[in-house]
Design a protein around this nucleic acid. Sequence first.
RNA 1: CGGGGUGUAGCGCAGUUGGCUAGCGCGCCACGUUCGGGACGUGGAGGCCGGAAGUUCGAGUCUUCUCACCCCGACCA
Length: 491
Amino acid sequence: MAKDFVTRSENYSEWYNELVTRADLAENSAVRGCMVIKPYGYAIWEKMHDALDKMFKDTGHVNAYFPLFIPKSFLCREAEHVEGFAKECAVVTHYRLKNDPDGSGVVVDPDARLEEELIVRPTSETIIWNTYKNWIKSYRDLPILCNQWANVVRWEMRTRMFLRTAEFLWQEGHTAHATKEEAIEEASRMLDVYADFAEKYMAMPVLKGIKSPNERFAGALDTYCIEAMMQDGKALQAGTSHFLGQNFAKAFDVKFLSNENKLEYVWATSWGVSTRLMGALIMTHSDDNGLVLPPKLAPTQVVIIPIYRNADQLPMISEKANEIKRKLEAKGISVKYDDRDSFKPGWKFNEYEFKGVPVRIAIGPRDIENGTVEVARRDTLEKEIYQITDIENKIENLLDNIQNNLFAKALSFRENNTRKADTWEEFNRILDEEGGFILAHWDGTPETEEAIKEKTKATIRCIPFDAPEEDGKCIFSGKPSKRRVVFARSY
RNA sequence: CGGGGUGUAGCGCAGUUGGCUAGCGCGCCACGUUCGGGACGUGGAGGCCGGAAGUUCGAGUCUUCUCACCCCGACCA
């Protein structure tokens, strides 16, 4: 095995960048902070997109599309919202270029200044609530359960492929409800959808919980989140679902007549996940041999590689390979038969390992003779000789097995890296020496959270829904606390 | 915006106190031998040494300016 690239333990972030490049997922573009998602990376995103989209539809949602540009005044309607996003907005000020009078090229035409600047959406609450105003008159118009798949722009100072890019792809759900209870129920239902997706498709265990006020979405009353742990022990916020109360309805004057003939403000939620999930997927499972994909999200689940000495042997092998391919495809398994003559088997083995293909089947003359194939699984790198009989069921089981194994492995990693701290010293020691999640008591004040963040760079990732009640003392202030919250350093 | 670093072939890099024809590895192309874990041989293609100005007989190398990218901070639903 040619190990000519950085290992996970040597330098985690370099390993990550190189992995993204070598697995052919994405590359940096000419535009600062923006990323080109390459066909293979996009194919994985499409698998995520399709699975999520189906889950949204199964919970009664429909897709729509809203404009990329938002008038500056819209963003300013909700005070906290604008406060939260103002610092990272791209702004359109002109609508035309012209030839430079000097003849030196093209310049912005100063005469084409927009009367009101347009913001490139960092999120769409404002333009959507401005639209919903026209859609909602009576309780009969509610609920509205819309989702949009879109790109958004946030001019971050520092970017990282998939985890934080200036432009990213995501989905954002925006719902409108007649009652507070219904909106809260929706926000919590969608968090469950995200958690299911993360665990069942991505094989990535997540903690479900609620954000502390400091970490809350700008303009929300409550932010629910799923938090995952990466292999370097840092936390990654993988998805959020917000209960927005009546903030946006009030900002955009969206009222409806209730069945009691009373004029009331609408209750709202919004929820989103982004291409950041790609980063989460990569960092949860991959190893020093490259990407490791859970079968449910692998664009190619099985690759078949022929091994032959000369062209005479190929037809017989191809016949067998195609037969296996047909049988697997009949089971709904995606298979690639790679009979390219321009690459050698060893080269192909390595390539598909980089790309994280869950199962590799090799067939050579020896196998034709014995009625066998060599099956290698990506998660453990184990190889085994299979009798070809009933191969489709064996492979189907193996794929399930890999999916489950990846989840189990990630879960035990998280559990092994989740620790309790009861004193400030212990808290600091764990952060510096071991990382991971720390369960600790907190007095519930933003000031304490801020102070802890300042001193340690650790933040409250969430207050888990299932945290048991337990009397304790805040690790920082010593004041009483009713339950432990999850601290970690995060991406 | 602070602190540090890097720009030389598609990628990764070397290039000495300035010295004449700018090199190495990988990759690429051709032919042949190979093919069960990234094969090997022979031959070949590929360069405005980030850009501009200066010093000099002579600049990849020295000086000044500039541009771009990366890392560490600040920032980050």
